[in-house]
Structures are given as C-alpha cells and as structure tokens.
Nucleic acid binder design. Structure first.
Lengths: 334, 334
DNA sequence: CACATCTATGCACACGTTAACAATAGTCTT
DNA sequence: AAGACTATTGTTAACGTGTGCATAGATGTG
C-alpha cells in the first residue's frame, strides 16, 4: 500500500540505495539529487518502515517504561508524573512502551532487539530479578525511585530518608514529643527509607517511639484511616502523626474528624509525596515533596546519553526532597 | 548475538523453514520434529525477532494509547485508570505505546505498519484531525470518553449528560432550589455534556439559573476555589453547587471552609468523576462516578475484536454513570 | 504394479531497509 | 597522456522471518 524507497527510486530514475542515502542525508549524494528525491518522497507521502529499519540497524526505537505494578499499590499521581517526565524528554525520538512488571509471566521477551533501553520505576525489592535480567542482556537501563546495587545500572532517586528525617525534625521543632508513625506498604523500599529517616530524627532528638505509636499501613486511604483510629483509641494519644504517604495522611485526617477532633488543633499530621490534592485538602497537608517528574527526566536523559554514546555510565544520583509546610501541623507551646 | 531460527535449524539438522513452522505449531510438521525443535529452542534461549516478524507479517504488535495531552489538563487518576483498563485486556499480546497527541508535530509517522490499532482517550474537540488521519489510513481505531462522529470509528464513553442530570435532580430532590454551577474546561466535550445534563435537570424541575450562579472553571483545584469564592461573595448565595469535576469541588470546599462556613451545613457541593480521594476528603464528596476503567476495558476489547477478526465494526457504546452519595449534600427542609 | 494421494520437509523468494564493495566518469598531477 | 584520485551512483548481500511451490517418500487403490 504505502510507498517504499523502491517506488521513489523508479520515479527518480535512480537505485533504491541512492534514495536511502538521500533520505538519510548522506554526504555521498549530490545535493540536487537529494532535493529531487525528497520532493518525490513528499509527494508519495513516504514514511520509512521502521520494522525494516530496525531489522537491519538493530535498533527498535522503543523505550520501555516499567512500573512495579499497574494493578495496585501504585498511586495515580506518581504514575502520571513519571510518564510525564520521561515523555517530555524523549518526545519524537522513541516510542514509550508502558508495562507493569507483574504483568510479565516471563522476561523472555525482553531482549536487546525489542528495547533500545529500559526505565524501571521501581517500588519494590521484588523487582530484583527483572533488573538482573535486563542488566545481563546488556540492555541500557536506569532504575528510578529505589536504590539498587546491581552493577552497571544507572540509578536516580530522591533521598527519602533525608526527607523523612526533615519531617520528623520539623515535628520536634514545633514542640511535639509524642509522635506516632504510620508505616508504608511492606516490601516497598520507600517504606523502609521513610521509616528509617523518621526514626533517625527521633533518635537524634532523643525521643522514643512506644510500640503503640507504630502502625503498619498499605499506602492507601483505608489503612491510614484504620491506623489513626487505633491511635485515637489509646489512653495516651500522640500529638502528631507522621504518615509515610499522603493518601494515608488523608485517611488519618478523616478518622480524626470522625472522632469529633480537629487537625491540627488536637492532633498534627504530616504526609509524604505532596500529591496534587495535598494543597487543597482541609487542612492543607504539610508533606514532603519528592521530585518525581524531575527524577524521571533526569533518568531518561542519562539513559539516552548512555544509549546514544554507547556508554555504560553507572552512577547513583540522589535528588533532594523538600518539606512543604502547610496547615496540618500545630505549633505546641513548650 | 541471540539465537535465530537458522541456528536452531543447524542444530536440529533441518531447514529454517521447518523450524519456523514448528515454532508456530504448524500442522504440517511432525509432532516429534516439533518437540525436538522446541527443546533446542529452549536450550538456546531463543526469542523471535519481532522486527523481522513484523516486516513479513505486516503487523507491529503495537497498540497506541493516545491521550489528548500528557502535559496538562489530564487528571492523574483518569490517566491511571485508562492505562490500567487497557493494560488489563491486552496483557502479553501487544505492546502498549503511550503518547500525548499534542506531542505530535506531524501525524506522518502514524502508519498501519507501526500500529496494529489505536485507542484514543479523547478529551477535546481538537482531537478531530488525528482521528481523521487514523481513520483515513485504515488503522483500527477506538475513541474513548468523547462522542465522535467520524464514520467507521468505534466509540465507547460514559453517558455524562445523564450523570450530570442525575446529580442535578438529586440536589433538587434534597430540597435545593438555589443551585450554582462551576463549569469544566472550555473546549472539552465533557464540560459541555456535564453542563448540558445539569441544565436539563434544572429545566426539568423548573428551576432557573441566574447568571451569577454560573462560573467558568479549568478542571483544576485552583479554579474551583476561585469560583466558590465568587459565589460566597454574592448577596444571595446558592445553597448548593454542582462542580463539573471533583478537583474543582475540592477547591470549592476549601473556599467554603476558609470563609468560616461548613459543607454541607451551609452549602452543599457535588462533584463529578469519583476520584480516588473523593471518599476520604472531609466531608466525603457526593459525586458522579464515570466507569473509566470499564470504558477502557470495553474499548480495548472491542478494538482487539476488530483487529483480530478483520472487522470494521463501528458502534457507539454508552456506559452508565453512577451517582455516589456521600456527605457533601445537605437535606433541606421544605 | 502403476498411479494417485497424502505427509513431511526443503528451496527460493519476499518483506523494506542499510552498507560494503564495485563501477563509472570526471579531474588532477607530472 | 597515463595514472591516481575524487565524486557520485549502482550492485549485491544482509538482517530474521514466513510462505508458495516443488520434492521425496510413504501409503492407498483398483
């Protein structure tokens, strides 16, 4: 149906090789010949067949963007920002293939032929195997959002431990001493890091966390809600709660209101992620902002650098988080 | 580097044709031969080169998933649910290529060779040209989320007019008579439909909407916030506000609280979309649920049907919206 | 047994592109 | 003017796979 370089060649009275060279702007071809060929190509509405190109050039023009899961546990905002960030970098140059790692029954089909490079937005330790598979196949790779120690892998992430530390320190500086923690989804590295940063802050300020002040969570609204209900039922309630993400913080705030109490007057809440709606909730949520879009941009940029210069750079890049102070934390009198 | 059918052929002592047939489970090949070849393929960790396959079979194994824009105006939850829905249907069979239509400088590269089918999640009338381009090229296509009249195009969407009608009717049935409207982003079909449904409800119940009770919006939190501030500054305030999406509803609620008033006691608010956080905001938001994930599933399913049976079905499928009653609407005494 | 039929496999080519090498004509050098 | 060099184009093969047609052997049939 669609025109090929051979069709153009016939019309131009040259060989298809000449057409190929002309359209690739080879210096071997005379300028007027090129121009003549370009015009004919235009007229025929010629589009190169990328499958044929790929076959001979051994490039797919595909970039994989893999998430730990698409089905559950990935927050919508996170997902969106990551795709946006990557997309803004690659634009026309590559096609972006989005997949959930848990959709793969076998990594068999992930080959150097089908992906020029792969970006993994990793949220779980379980991603280890696929990372190794890709690294072994020699496919250029960057892992975002989670630290990874496989050799020869680019790694871009935010310093969440640091972010959680700041959030904890902030609570202490606002006069809080009875501070509780709602943890993130088990197995997610982010859950560990945020918890670790928070604990380091508490330790740093000499504040201990009683067992009753710790609740597990699943990163969703429901679990934040339940955890806060637990805290509220305690004899001695915390004055502040650090939630390992915003969604849980929302659930927690809801529980406070349901109990007839106020945030931040009766209890302060801090989140993590600075989700789009954090600013508009009542009260506006004090939270830690991860620069996800920036991480994805940075990651995509470095990956493309590696691909196009045939390098194998392998570094770990940590990007700063930022504490966004809003209205959900009360300043306590000493 | 990686093994090809020719490598397998040598080891098996057959021609590459036989290998090709065996691996495609052709009935022409003896069962034992097939088995022998399969084992060798397994040992060599053979993966078919999809570029070569595509070239000869004239199929790309690619499905395009195009959004009106990735940069702005698309809500994260919407985006996420759409990808999830489609992804759950296609699984291994196709690669999902995600793009923003506004990233295309030219549709030239969208050809039958590079996409087996395309799903457009359309949010704007501006998507007309690309829809026509794709339809002209004869690429199987389904347009989601927005009605489209181009011939030969599958179309799956929710009946938003109906949804908005119900929301409006509900407000009236709860005793409201002074009802205001915050509109959606101009140019988005959804904005028109929601407005139309709401207006039809008002008309149906013989309620008129004064000009001061209409405010434009941009589907974002900020614009909802501003619009509600306007309403609150009126001499005669509305008792209820219908917001064309949840994000604006959140902004509106925030404005109410800032003015020292309560939702729903002093003013009722209804949203549209049932975003993930709608249930956990305070007060929990009464809203209209669009079955986006279901729309995407349904759309993907029908598209695959068309592709694989070489059909050209062209229907418009309307999926029901659902009014989710929560806490943001007050029952007024007659 | 001669012929037709069926089964399993191979040969050769095609898909659309790029690239190594060959060929031709023109230009320069001495 | 012969040889060397340059600029431009063509010839041919290659990438990995699938398929129409030919082929060879086995089986059936009257």
């Amino acid at each position: 149906m669609s025109a090929t370089i051979k069709d153009i060649a016939k019309l131009a009275g040259v060989s298809h090789t000449t057409v190929s060279r002309a359209l690739n702007n080879s210096p071997l071809i005379q300028e007027e010949t090129k121009e003549r060929i370009r015009i004919i190509a235009e007229q025929l509405d010629y589009t190169p067949n990328y499958n044929a190109k790929s076959l001979v050039l051994d490039r797919s023009y595909n970039l994989g963007l893999f998430f730990t899961t698409l089905s559950n546990g990935t927050s919508a905002g996170f997902f969106y920002e990551a795709i946006r960030g990557v997309n803004s970098v690659i634009r026309d140059r590559y096609q972006l293939i989005v997949k959930g790692i848990d959709d793969y029954t076998s990594f068999h089909s992930i080959t150097k032929k089908s992906f020029d490079g792969i970006i993994i937005v990793s949220q779980s330790d379980d991603d280890g195997p696929i990372i190794e598979h890709i690294a072994n196949k020699g496919i250029p790779l960057v892992v975002l959002n989670r630290p990874v120690d496989t050799a020869g892998v680019l790694n871009v992430l935010s310093d969440e431990e640091q972010g959680a530390f700041h959030a904890g320190a902030y609570l202490v500086n606002q006069g809080h001493k009875k501070i509780a923690l709602i943890e993130g989804r088990k197995g997610f590295k982010s859950a560990q890091n945020r918890k670790a940063g928070f604990e380091r802050a508490m330790e740093h300020y000499g504040i201990s966390i009683p067992a009753a002040f710790r609740m597990p969570g699943l990163y969703d609204l429901e679990s934040g809600h339940q955890a806060m209900q637990q805290f509220l039922s305690l004899e001695e309630r915390p004055t502040a709660v650090f939630c390992c993400n915003d969604e849980m913080a929302l659930g927690a705030i809801k529980a406070v209101f349901e109990a007839g109490l106020q945030v931040p007057k009766d209890i302060s809440v801090v989140g993590f992620d600075d989700t789009v709606f954090a600013a508009y909730v009542t009260p506006a949520l004090t939270t830690v902002r991860r620069p996800i879009e920036q991480i994805s941009k940075e990651g995509a940029l470095r990956l493309l650098g590696n691909i196009e210069n045939k390098l194998h750079t392998t570094e770990q890049v940590l990007l700063r988080t930022e504490l966004i102070v809003r209205e959900s934390v009360q300043l306590l009198q000493a």
